[in-house]
Structures are given as structure tokens and as C-alpha cells.
Design a protein around this nucleic acid. Structure first.
Lengths: 158, 158
DNA sequence: GGCATATAGTAACCTAGTTTACAATGATTG
DNA sequence: CAATCATTGTAAACTAGGTTACTATATGCC
């Protein structure tokens, strides 16, 4: 029983019913992404755009210079993807871009009033979704879930 | 302090350091997806193609007729996405498609020898990654993590 | 100053996946 | 049997995102 050829043996270590932690995570993520997708849809933005605007808001609150390069760093998004996303956001009238006076290569990104308003609302909506999503857990369970997640993140961080 | 306008108040309920469960989940998923992406890359397949082939293998083991429509149902993938993915898999010599004799609209998808071999190896690799990813937890913690995840999935299933 | 090297951003191209609309066949019911 | 309805799969157009290769500017070093 030690060696079998591919057509006879099953590679599945767990039955689908049994559920490996990875497969469970997969299902969880599908649900979570779905919930987020619905929100982003309402606001007509993508996940990426949300991440960018949330970072931008963060910078604004920290009074850090919001150049694209800094956003790339902070939001951990590919710089080309960011470049294009910012253009879209500009088209949509949510941000505008102004060349920096200090470093003329770089571009400062700033919210329009609309953009700032939208990201505020979106963040609130996401946080509400978050609450809802985990509302089936007790305080204790939630604390435990967070602690475990933190461990796993820590155990797998580069 | 009850009412503030958007430019003054912060919508962030949690500090980034504090970490809402959703944000933690986001980070976890980023790591997990990254790990999977590296594997899929090695095998030159996409996540979608992996899911499809895993479903197909499942059908094969259950001796169920592997039509595209059945795959769509089981893998919960959009039928157009599946149609195109299958074509790619055929191009890559991993499956072939043969019109069904019973229902001439439908198409039966079958592994080639290469395809079957590849999905076996990929599944093993994914399961190893899975083990690795959660290896920082003790047995007990893992059991607890799974139980909590199952609760959340159950609490958010349609 | 002047040359090498790093950095900010982008244009052009590529791929995966989604939406919409449709053709072909099968099932159902009068 | 014929008219209607459902199912299977696809073509075409579109979008988001990523890769490669490039321009322009800045910085460091002699």
C-alpha cells in the first residue's frame, strides 16, 4: 500500500467533508470576499482602490506626503497597478494628482471632497460588515480567533 | 464629539496596530494566497484551473459524469470562466473534451495521463503547504482554529 | 561640474476572469 | 407533433491587474 500509481491512489488527505484547515480557510475567504465585493460594488470601487484610498486617508491623518511611491510601499500594491488605479480614481473624481514641488518626478495624491466622503462611508460599511461577519462568535471566541490568526500570521511572515 | 465632519473625524474604529478581525483575515489571506500562488506557478496553472482539476478528480473517483455543467456546480465557478479554463487546460494537454453521446449539448471532460499526474502532484504540494502554514499551531490550537472557522463559515452561509 | 546609479511614474502589451447575448439541443406540455 | 421553455456551452467585448521596458529626474561620488 506504500506505492500506488496516480490513477489508483487518491491524493486527498482529507475527505471534502472532513476539511483541511486550508480548505476551510478557502471557504471562509470566499464568503468574506463575497461580502466585501457587494460593498465595493455599491461604492463602485475595487478592492484595490479601497486599499489605496484607505492608505491615502491614513497618510492624510499622519500628515505624511502622499506620493504614489509611498502608497505602493504602504498598501503593498504593485506600482503599475497603483498608477492605473489612481488614474481611474482621478477620472471618477475621487482624488487628484499634483506634481510635487520638492521632487518633480513624484506626484502627490489628494482626496477630493467626494473622495474623502466616499472612503469614509466605505470604511464604515466595511467595518460594519466585519462586525456582522464575526457576530456569530462570542467575545471570548472572537478573542481566541484573533489570537490564533495573529499567531498564524506571525508564523508565516517573511 | 457626537458629530464631526468627514475631514476631521477618523472612520478607523481600530488602530492599524490594534487590528480588526477582518484586517487580520486580510493579512492572513494575503500570506496564504501568496504561498498557493507560488505553488500554482510552479505547475503553471491558475487557482481556478486547480479548483477545476481537483473537482474533476473528485468526479472521476466518484464515477460521476464529468460534464462542464457538473463542474460548474461543484467547483462553484462561473460557466464562462470554466469554459475558457477548460480550453486552456486542453491546449496545455492536461485534459481533453469529448462531446457526450447521451446529451449532445454537453461535453465530457477527461484527464490526460499528464493532467492526472499533474493534479496529483499539485494536490500533494498544496496539502504540504497547508501543513506548513498551520504548523506554528499546536494540535489543540489547530483544532480550536478549525472549530472557530467552521462556526464562522456556518454563521455566514446562505 | 560630470558621470554612474537609483528612483518615480508610465506606455504598451498580456492574461485571467466577468458580462452579455446567443446558438444548439433537449425536455415538457398543450 | 408542435410550441414553449430550460439547459449546455460559446463568441465577443470589457475590466482589472501584472510584466516588461522605457523616460525623466534625482542623488552620490570622483
Amino acid at each position: 500500500m506504500k506505492q500506488q500509481n496516480a490513477s489508483e491512489s487518491s491524493p486527498f488527505k482529507h475527505d471534502q467533508a472532513d476539511d483541511s484547515p486550508g480548505f476551510l480557510l478557502w471557504k471562509l475567504v470566499a464568503l468574506w470576499q463575497g461580502k466585501l465585493a457587494r460593498i465595493f460594488n455599491e461604492f463602485s470601487i475595487t478592492q484595490t482602490q479601497f486599499a489605496i484610498m484607505a492608505s491615502l486617508l491614513w497618510f492624510e491623518q499622519q500628515h505624511e506626503p502622499p506620493t504614489q511611491a509611498r502608497l505602493v510601499e504602504h498598501a503593498k500594491i504593485d506600482k503599475m497597478t497603483l498608477s492605473k488605479a489612481i488614474r481611474k480614481l482621478e477620472e471618477a473624481g475621487l482624488v487628484h494628482r499634483e506634481p510635487s514641488a520638492i521632487d518633480t518626478r513624484s506626484i502627490q495624491v489628494r482626496f477630493t471632497a467626494n473622495g474623502r466622503e466616499l472612503i469614509h462611508q466605505a470604511i464604515v460599511a466595511v467595518e460594519r460588515a466585519d462586525d456582522e461577519f464575526f457576530s456569530c462568535l462570542t467575545e471570548q471566541q472572537l478573542a481566541s480567533y484573533k489570537a490564533l490568526t495573529i499567531s498564524i500570521v506571525a508564523g508565516n511572515s517573511p
